[in-house]
């Protein structure tokens, strides 16, 4: 690795047109479903709802370098809703962190591609997550360390809306504004579903934007599948240095892109059967 390589030049493939980003996201949706089918279990619904956001982050916003996953000045992403890792795995492999063939070992004994993300086994994973409610606290600590060391890296945390039922999330919402962490960007993947049903029925967490604003977060609400809107929201968040952490409430569709999975909580944690996979891949071709 040559020391001259600089921050701003991530080595990931860089689709320049918005159309390309959409194509890339569609291809990664196919990867997500294929890897979960191969594994025989996994979480398609919440993976499909965050893939567009991850695509914008890794190909438009984040300063990262797959050849130097431990580069100290990289932007960090903590996937607090760790069960959606098939989406992150698809992104990291396409970006060049590890070979795409490894995706098909998801959930198999000895695989670095664990059922939930494991930072010690797979390059590009910043924190091992999956026990819900913890990711934002960890991301906060990363942002605090950056602030203390006067670093310019940004930290992104992706949370589920069902996950917000965990009390630790609210401890983190309460505490991040105290430290003025304006390089911290939290994104709630508001897909409205969780294992036992719709979030509104299991344990309502709304109205989210009002709650975050009252906690002192710079908050916007967007369509999490509108690439331009996602990019605009994240861009404006990372450019603002108003001494407040940023919250993006991304309204998404669980199972987005596959007609029979969309907004059906049954697809939270279930692998498609062969005919279902074929039908889904056809829709995504």
């Amino acid at each position: 690795m040559s020391p001259e390589r600089t921050a701003a030049a991530p080595a990931a493939e860089k689709p320049q047109e918005r159309e390309d980003l959409k194509t890339l996201a569609r291809e990664m949706r196919r990867d997500i479903l294929t890897m979960i089918y191969e594994a025989g279990s996994g979480h398609p619904g919440g993976s499909l709802s965050i893939i567009d956001i991850l695509t914008v982050l890794y190909w438009r916003v984040m300063r990262h370098d797959p050849e130097r996953p431990d580069w100290p000045d990289r932007d960090r992403l903590v996937l607090s809703k760790g069960h959606a890792c098939p989406a992150l795995y698809a992104v990291l492999s396409r970006a060049g962190y590890f070979p795409r063939e490894q995706l098909w070992t998801l959930r198999k004994l000895g695989s670095p591609v664990q059922g939930h993300p494991d930072r010690l086994r797979l390059p590009g994973i910043e924190a091992s997550t999956g026990s819900l409610g913890q990711g934002l606290s960890i991301a906060m600590g990363m942002a605090l360390a950056g602030m203390m060391d006067r670093k310019s890296y940004r930290v992104f945390a992706i949370l589920g809306d069902g996950e917000l039922q965990e009390g630790q999330c609210w401890e983190a919402f309460m505490s991040a504004p105290k430290f003025g962490l304006d390089r911290l960007v939290a994104i709630v993947d508001s897909n409205g579903g969780q294992i036992d049903g719709h979030v509104r029925d299991v344990m309502n967490v709304e109205p989210l934007p009002e709650k975050f604003r009252s906690f002192g977060w710079d908050t916007v609400e967007i369509d999490g599948h509108d690439f331009a809107a996602v990019e605009r929201a994240i861009d404006s968040a990372v450019k603002s240095a108003a001494g407040r952490p940023h919250m993006i409430v991304a309204r998404t569709v669980k199972g987005k892109g596959v007609s029979f999975m969309e907004d059906d909580p049954a697809w939270h944690g279930k692998a498609p059967k062969k005919d279902e996979l074929e039908k889904a891949l056809k829709e995504l071709s």
């Binding site: 606290s137 960890i138 906060m140 600590g141 401890e171 983190a172 505490s175």
Partner: peptide
């Protein structure tokens, strides 16, 4: 500058500490 008061919220403190450690601090 090296002391953080997190309030009566220990589980968040544990997570924040982990994040600090992942970026080179000794919490």
């Amino acid at each position: 500058a090296r002391h953080l008061e997190l309030g009566i919220a220990e589980q968040n403190m544990v997570g924040v500490g982990a994040g600090l450690a992942l970026c080179g601090k000794i919490p």
